Simulated scan of single mutants.
Amino acid sequence: MHRAETAFRHLLAGLSGISILVVFGVVFAGSVSRYAFSAPLQWSEEVAKYAMIYGCMFGIAYAYLQDRQINFTLVTDLLSKQMRARLTVIVDVSTFVLGGILAYAGLIFAGKRGGIIASGLGIPMYWAQIAMTVGGACLVLAALFRLARLMNKNRPEYEA
């Protein structure tokens, strides 16, 4: 399970990195085209926007999998270690459920409005809107890995 989690973590990191690389590359190319050649790239803004959306979805799951998401620990720091462990399980189960809801809602949203054509790219908006489903699925997998890590925590062959 540890290998699968590590591979998933690397996949999320790579996809997040590629997304931000696409954003910077497209914005740079659009700027050069606009200011150096007075010919803006019509599609650059949409590509950058969609790459940011996907990058956020991958980044959210990546941060959550590493337990580096935003935490408000003012209250949890006052809890006992046992209560914090229980709260962690509740958060992971909640993330699993909410990730599934997000994935399902994304499918419905893309199904209903995915036929709209993006003006700059000329492709169906489905490819941008399905990012909600991808992000929800990534959160579901991340929650499963975290729950598996919690269950295997006391096993000596498992490395945290």
Results as ranks from 00 to 15, higher is better:
V75Y: 12
Q69W: 03
P156M: 13
F37K: 15
I108T: 09
S16W: 01
Y62V: 06
M52S: 07
R86P: 08
H10W: 10
L150V: 02
S33P: 13
V134L: 13
V93K: 00
L12A: 09
F24R: 07
H10I: 02
F28Q: 06
Q42V: 08
A118Y: 01
F145K: 01
I116G: 09
P124S: 13
A63W: 07
L78R: 08
I53G: 01
F72G: 02
A4M: 11
M52W: 00
G120R: 00
A39H: 07
R34L: 15
G136M: 10
I90C: 12
A61V: 08
L12S: 01
A36R: 04
A105R: 09
L78W: 02
A39W: 02
V97G: 13
A110T: 13
L150C: 02
L141V: 14
I60M: 05
A61Y: 04
V91Y: 08
I60S: 05
G25D: 10
P156R: 09
S33W: 13
S31M: 13
V75D: 03
Q42F: 07
L74K: 09
I70V: 15
V47A: 12
S94R: 01
G14K: 10
V97D: 03
K81Y: 08
C56I: 10
V23H: 06
M151E: 06
V27T: 15
I117M: 12
G25R: 05
A85H: 12
T6E: 11
L102S: 04
S33M: 14
R68W: 05
L144T: 08
L144H: 05
C138Y: 03
K153A: 15
A51W: 00
S31I: 14
R155E: 09
V75E: 12
Y64M: 09
L121G: 02
M52R: 01
V26Q: 00
S94G: 15
L78A: 15
W43K: 09
G99W: 01
K81T: 08
V26P: 02
W127N: 08
E159P: 00
Y64W: 01
A105C: 08
W43R: 10
S16R: 02
A7V: 14
T95L: 00
R155Q: 05
G14T: 12
F28R: 00
T95K: 01
V27C: 12
M125V: 14
V23R: 08
L74G: 03
G115T: 06
Y54F: 04
W127L: 12
Y35Q: 15
A142P: 04
I60D: 00
V26N: 06
G120N: 03
F96H: 03
M151K: 14
D92R: 02
K112M: 05
V91E: 06
E159S: 13
H2K: 13
L139P: 06
Y62G: 05
G111W: 10
A48S: 10
G114N: 06
A85C: 11
P156N: 02
L87M: 12
L21G: 13
Q82N: 04
R113D: 07
N154R: 14
A142S: 05
G122W: 02
P156V: 11
L87Q: 14
I130G: 11
L12G: 05
K153N: 03
M125E: 13
H10V: 03
I18F: 07
A48G: 07
